[in-house]
Simulated scan of single mutants.
Amino acid sequence: MYEHILFPTDGSDGAAAALAHARNLAETHDATLHIMTVIDTSSPHIGMTTAGPEGATTGMVAEEHDESEPGMVGEEHNVESSLQERAQAIVEAAADEVDTVDTITTVERGPPHSAILDYANENDIDLIVMGTHGRTGIERYLLGSVAEKVVRTSNVPVLTARLGDDTT
């Protein structure tokens, strides 16, 4: 029934709660488990700034910028590689936990819900298994929910697992 299962993860405890479900389904159906994380390009990077009118700057930057300078300004150039390294570590850690099934790992970029749906469509995904943080009320309203957006707009079934769900 399922040949390709997508497990999007942000490395959180909520995502980890869904990993056991994804592994069990992949084992049961002899499916390939696609493990992905998304570098959210829809959010501005902290510390990334641009010059304003007449050379003025916004945010916390030095007047003269040298790539070798330590601290916040000098590390701006390493933000992308740091995000990529952290994202790669997240998918590799998840893949290590499910070594009983075939896995494909990937790091995508973009708004998370869009990247998940695009990947699912482009890779013939049969099922998406993802965790939720279990937020309610104003916190959910203010922070939004990637899982909720995926559930509402996906063309394939989506299984969600909340942190604390029994995964045995």
Rank of each mutant, 00 (worst) to 15 (best):
Y2R: 12
Y2E: 11
E3S: 13
E3P: 00
H4N: 15
L6E: 11
P8E: 08
D10E: 00
D10P: 01
G14N: 10
A15W: 05
A17G: 04
A17S: 11
A17Q: 01
A18C: 10
A20F: 02
H21L: 10
R23T: 08
N24Q: 14
T28N: 07
H29A: 01
D30A: 07
A31Y: 07
L33W: 01
L33N: 02
H34M: 06
T37R: 07
T37W: 03
T37Q: 01
V38R: 13
D40C: 04
T41D: 14
S42Q: 06
S43Q: 15
H45Y: 13
H45P: 09
I46D: 13
G47T: 02
T50V: 13
A51T: 15
A51D: 12
G52K: 09
G52N: 12
G52S: 14
G55C: 11
A56T: 13
T57D: 10
T58G: 13
G59Q: 09
M60W: 09
M60L: 14
V61L: 06
E63P: 06
E64I: 13
E64K: 10
D66A: 14
D66Q: 12
S68A: 15
P70F: 06
G71F: 00
G71H: 00
V73W: 02
V73I: 11
G74M: 00
G74P: 02
G74S: 01
E80H: 11
S82I: 07
L83W: 01
E85L: 09
R86M: 07
A87F: 02
A87C: 00
A89G: 07
V91M: 03
A94H: 07
D99E: 12
T100C: 04
D102C: 01
T103P: 08
I104N: 13
T106P: 00
T106C: 10
V107R: 05
V107M: 03
R109T: 10
G110V: 07
P111T: 08
P112A: 03
H113C: 02
A115C: 09
L117Q: 12
D118Y: 03
D118F: 01
Y119K: 09
N121P: 01
N121S: 13
N123V: 01
N123D: 12
D124A: 14
V129E: 03
G131C: 08
H133W: 05
R135M: 06
R135H: 08
G137Q: 09
G137H: 09
I138K: 09
E139M: 08
R140P: 00
R140C: 03
Y141C: 05
G144K: 09
V146E: 05
V146I: 13
E148A: 15
V150I: 04
V151H: 02
V151D: 03
R152M: 10
T153Q: 15
T153R: 15
S154R: 06
L159P: 02
A161I: 14
A161P: 00
G164I: 11
D166S: 06
D166N: 08
